[in-house]
């Protein structure tokens, strides 16, 4: 039977996006769980240094939510891989759909998740400070955080999580294209970590680190991240489009 109703793409994407927010709500429980675990790690102090002389022994502990953010990036990566798996992709067939709308709604979901992860991970920095004050009994020296810094921090953190998500989305897609990637990707990643740096004074890891993490211009950082995520999501979309229906 043919349908006389033509589906508007925006409406379909919006419906799928809202559906995925509801269907994947448990991902946010795991976000909270992972951030609480990271907070526990953070309370031990991010860094500790000591110094001593004939007059004193000094211990300086530094606290921040960097560990929370790192854990949240891992969460973003795993969540993105999860939504590319077959059970999650099959949700899309509840709606009139094609690969494009499915991918767009997935990307929108990951953007939302990244934003939520970015907001909570930066705000959890305050929780680290409060917990440190009440439970560890240290006097906490801190410089005031300006509203502008907070906003930039949230946006940048969200972008980092989105990048991790886009990498996860590509990995998940590749694993759907061929099961061989389930072995190849971890092998490549481990090899990448131990890449011999003795022949290369500027190993690729360092170049990547400098490209994203040392960039001090927010606008340039924004452009770099948006281009990177666009390339990664775009590649995933192309790969998905090449797959058969319900493959």
């Amino acid at each position: 039977m043919m349908s006389l109703t033509s589906a508007n793409m925006n409406v379909v994407v919006k419906r799928q996006y809202l559906f995925k927010l509801k269907a994947n709500i448990d991902a946010f429980s795991s976000l909270i769980g992972i951030q609480v675990i990271a907070l526990l790690f953070s309370l031990g102090g991010m860094g500790m240094s000591g110094s001593s002389s004939s007059y004193f022994t000094l211990t300086v502990r530094s606290y921040s939510a960097d560990v929370v953010l790192a854990f949240t990036m891992i969460w973003g990566l795993v969540t993105a891989i999860t939504i590319t798996t077959r059970p999650y992709r099959n949700f899309d067939f509840t709606f009139v759909t094609n690969r494009l709308t499915s991918n767009l709604s997935n990307v929108l979901f990951l953007v939302t998740a990244s934003l939520l992860g970015g907001v909570t991970s930066i705000l959890s920095g305050y929780l680290v400070r409060v917990a440190g004050y009440f439970f560890l009994g240290h006097t906490l020296y801190s410089s005031e955080m300006a509203v502008g810094e907070l906003i930039i921090g949230i946006i940048a953190a969200s972008l980092y999580i989105l990048t991790a998500s886009s990498i996860g989305y590509l990995f998940g897609t590749l694993a759907q294209v061929s099961k061989a990637f389930i072995i190849v990707i971890p092998a490549l990643l481990i090899g990448f970590l131990f890449l011999d740096i003795s022949f290369n004074p500027m190993p690729i890891q360092q170049e990547i680190y400098q490209f994203y993490f040392i960039e001090s211009s927010f606008i340039l950082f924004l452009i770099k991240i948006l281009l990177t995520t666009a390339i990664l999501f775009g590649t995933s979309s192309i790969l998905f489009n090449r797959m058969g229906v319900r493959q």
């Binding site: 211990t59 606290y63 921040s64 920095g125 020296y141 940048a156």
Partner: peptide, 24 residues
């Protein structure tokens, strides 16, 4: 001999990356 512990809170790296503050 004095035993001193000082706790310093640091802004998260996505903030210090752009505000020019150095990590401790």
């Amino acid at each position: 001999i004095q035993d001193v512990t000082i706790a310093i809170t640091e802004k998260e790296f996505p903030i210090t990356q752009f505000n020019g503050q150095k990590r401790t």
